[in-house]
């Protein structure tokens, strides 16, 4: 089994390198270079060219890539030309915000998915099951951004249960109880919106997994031996169905990343997704690059983690 893990990790390394090359080449294709962020736009062309030469900006792309990559490894993500500050400083607070948003979304996703999936699978083909299935069916067909807008409209503006933008009420002392409470309040509506949409695939998976497991021989054996219904579910079915679900969170990261872009825009939440869109619009490409790189690496590592956990939980996967 450790062989599978080593092999899986070995696949991850070229993935990350490839991602960085792709992003680097994209950055080369983007209008403007590192210089545009550093110097006064009124400097003459000759002076700029001289500066470019001095800074090594005319070197072949692979040399520049090497330099850029070694900077990355040391945590140097470049300069934001809009904000005239290192990208890493700019990103820090945003990243923390997005992290909490993603974590909240994941938690709410599982809080919704697990009971719904279990109920739907245990009482399959009842009215309860069909209403849960109906929810997942519609949820699958609903784009996140429309759902987010409707949630904001209903709970933010009409009912005014939640704040409609920002990540915290301004003027609160960081670290105070009110501050934390306000943060959570700002987090909740976007997280719920994202979770309600994201949860549908997990509910469906869990349901079919349970329906499947119910008909397996060892469950029938357990019943035949006289185990009580709740014991059959708790001891046998759930243990077999829940573990893979738990391991899925790594794959969910890819969806979360797509989701945060929309949700942060709709709810005016100052996270990485919003920073990404703003930077694209401002043509602040070093920031764009950094955000995509961080999200990309997060997704790659998430998939790695899920694969490894799944291989521990489910030996069938290792064979492949």
């Amino acid at each position: 089994m450790w062989k599978f893990i080593v092999r899986r990790i070995l696949i991850t390394i070229p993935q990350i390198i490839l991602l960085s090359v792709l992003l680097f080449l994209l950055a080369q294709a983007m209008p403007g270079d590192a210089l545009s962020g550093l110097v006064d736009p009124n400097v003459s062309l000759e002076q700029k060219n001289a500066l470019r030469e001095k800074l090594g900006l005319n070197a072949p792309w692979y040399e520049k890539y090497g330099e850029w990559a070694s900077g990355l490894v040391q945590g140097d993500l470049g300069q934001s030309f809009r904000f005239k500050m290192p990208v890493s400083d700019l990103i820090e607070q945003r990243m923390i915000n997005t992290f909490w948003l993603s974590l909240a979304t994941l938690i709410i996703t599982y809080i919704i998915a697990i009971p719904l999936g279990i109920l739907s699978g245990r009482y399959n083909d009842t009215i309860l099951d069909s209403s849960i299935t109906g929810y997942t069916y519609i949820g699958f067909a609903t784009p996140l951004f429309i759902f987010g807008l409707v949630m904001l409209w209903v709970f933010g503006y009409q009912l005014q249960w939640f704040p409609t933008s920002g990540s915290v009420t301004p003027g609160l002392e960081p670290g105070s109880f009110e501050y934390v409470l306000s943060k959570a309040q700002h987090l909740l509506l976007p997280a719920i919106s994202m979770a309600l949409i994201q949860t549908v695939s997990t509910v469906q998976y869990l349901r079919s997994e349970i329906v499947d497991t119910k008909q397996r021989e060892f469950i029938i054996t357990a019943r035949a031996k006289g185990a009580s219904e709740s014991r059959v579910y708790n001891k046998h079915i759930l243990r077999n169905s829940l573990l893979p679900i738990a391991a899925f969170f790594g794959y969910e990261i890819t969806f979360l990343i797509g989701g945060t872009v929309f949700v942060e825009m709709i709810f005016g939440f100052p996270g990485m997704g919003q920073l990404f869109i703003e930077s694209i619009l401002l043509r602040d490409y070093s920031v764009v690059n950094a955000v995509v790189l961080i999200f990309g690496i997060a997704a790659i590592l998430g998939a790695l983690l899920s694969d490894i956990i799944l291989s521990l939980v489910d030996p069938r996967i290792r064979i492949k």
Partner: peptide, 22 residues
């Protein structure tokens, strides 16, 4: 399949937006 795995793990929305803008 390794190529496919790589594409699948890329942040789709963001890359499309970057491409569209350049």
């Amino acid at each position: 399949m390794r190529v496919l795995d790589f594409f699948q793990v890329l942040p789709f929305t963001m890359l499309v937006i970057v491409f569209v803008s350049i």
